[in-house]
Simulated scan of single mutants.
Amino acid sequence: MLAKQERLSSGVDPETRWGQARRIRSPVGLMVLLLGVILLLLWISIALGSVPITFSELWQALWGQGDPIRQTIVWQLRLPRALLAQLLGAALGMAGALLQGMLGNGLADPYLLGISAGAGLAAVALLTWGEWTAWVPLAAWVGGVLTTVLVYGLARTRSGLAVERLILAGVAVSALFGAISSALLLLADERVQVALTWLIGSLSGRGWPEVRVSGVYILVGLGLGWAQARALNLLGLGEEMAVSLGIPLVRTRVTIGLVAALLAAAVVSVGGLIGFVGLVVPHMVRQGVGSDHRWLLPLSALAGAALLSGADLLARLGAVELPVGIVTALMGAPFFGWLLRQREAGQ
């Protein structure tokens, strides 16, 4: 009884709707491991490519020494792209953890709920018009927020927010906005190739301007998202318990939804529609540290950074460079099918 009260007072109860999750001994150890993987992937991403760069050459280039061509490759081409992949992965990982924790459903992520599609539609609209490209990040965020409101409205019932309706509404909205985006592409002329990359999800040609633009939004969103850890832990105890402990349900869910929309829109504004990262990463992290969002949120960000960095590395090391969105879909779609089978077996 005392242990139960202690868990409730901290906002963490492993016997929630997520069930008893297997935990590792030290979340700090997992954090250190992920940081090491991120740094390793960063080095590999910079070193490997059509022009291989050794460790000594990389070290010299980072300090502005050695071959000027390799300095250009490192500083202007590979380093900003590698950093951008990790920033976007962190945003998607935390956005998925926020939505799954808020809804208590492991099928939620910005891609499946239509948030990314709404942000992508706004971005494609401005890109095809060609005169408002400087406003693409802001338009993507507004599109993501408005889509979040629309999906919530479609899923709301008299008894509250129905999770199954929310997912179905997200799929329907994604299909609708995808069709509109395709129509805009058909009406576009010379900018169709640029706009098409937003629908596929690609980091090709991205540089420091994209890092600076998205980095501000993502870092702010990561901080705001981590601040919701206690509220998410209390929501995991059930709506009645959360209200009794002082959590305003509507305001809390709106806040979490807006933060997730901010993170997803920041990704779409520079990388396009990159799916399944926000779905896969929180499940992987939850198997290690359980459902305590004080650890789950930052570790999901780190794991997302590592996953998307690895996916981008795979995308550009083949004979033909693939959009990173295709690689994440190839990795995430089988996991989504496995997750559905697991949920069916658990019923």
Rank of each mutant, 00 (worst) to 15 (best):
L203A: 02
W198Y: 14
G271H: 03
G246Y: 05
L235E: 01
G215T: 05
F276Q: 09
S204T: 14
L199P: 00
A242K: 00
G207S: 13
A265D: 04
L222I: 04
L222P: 02
L196Y: 12
P209E: 10
A265G: 12
A227C: 11
V213L: 14
E239C: 03
P248D: 12
L262C: 01
L263I: 03
T197W: 11
V267Y: 05
V270S: 05
P209Q: 11
G205L: 01
A266E: 02
A227I: 06
P209I: 09
E210W: 05
E210S: 13
V213R: 14
G225D: 09
G246N: 12
V267D: 05
L222R: 02
V277C: 09
G257M: 04
V194K: 14
T252R: 03
I247Q: 11
L199V: 06
A231E: 08
S244L: 12
S244Y: 12
V277N: 07
P248V: 10
V280I: 14
I218M: 08
L262Y: 00
G246D: 11
W208H: 08
L258T: 04
G207D: 08
G225S: 11
L219H: 10
L279I: 08
L245R: 14
S202F: 07
G207Q: 11
A265C: 06
W208K: 03
L234I: 01
Q228V: 02
P248N: 13
V254N: 08
G221E: 04
R253Q: 13
L219I: 11
L224K: 10
P209Y: 08
W208A: 08
L222T: 01
E210P: 02
S244I: 10
A231I: 00
G272S: 09
A195V: 05
E240R: 14
L199N: 07
A231H: 10
L199Y: 02
S214A: 15
V194Q: 15
A195M: 10
V281I: 15
L273N: 12
E239K: 08
L222G: 02
Q228K: 01
Q193C: 04
L263Q: 07
L237N: 11
S202Y: 03
E210M: 11
T252I: 00
N233K: 05
M241D: 13
G221C: 07
V270Q: 03
R253T: 01
Y217F: 10
G225W: 05
Q193T: 12
A195I: 01
I200K: 13
G272P: 01
V216W: 12
G201L: 02
E239G: 09
G278E: 09
G275N: 06
V254H: 04
V213T: 15
A242Y: 04
Q228I: 01
L262D: 00
T197P: 00
L258Q: 00
I274K: 08
A229H: 11
G221M: 00
G271D: 01
V281L: 10
I274L: 13
L222F: 07
W226R: 15
G236M: 12
G201N: 05
S202I: 04
A227D: 06
G272N: 02
V268R: 03
R251D: 10
L245P: 10
A266R: 03
A265S: 15
S214M: 09
G236Y: 06
A266W: 02
R230F: 13
L245E: 11
L199R: 10
I200H: 11
S204W: 14
W208Q: 06
L234K: 04
I247P: 00
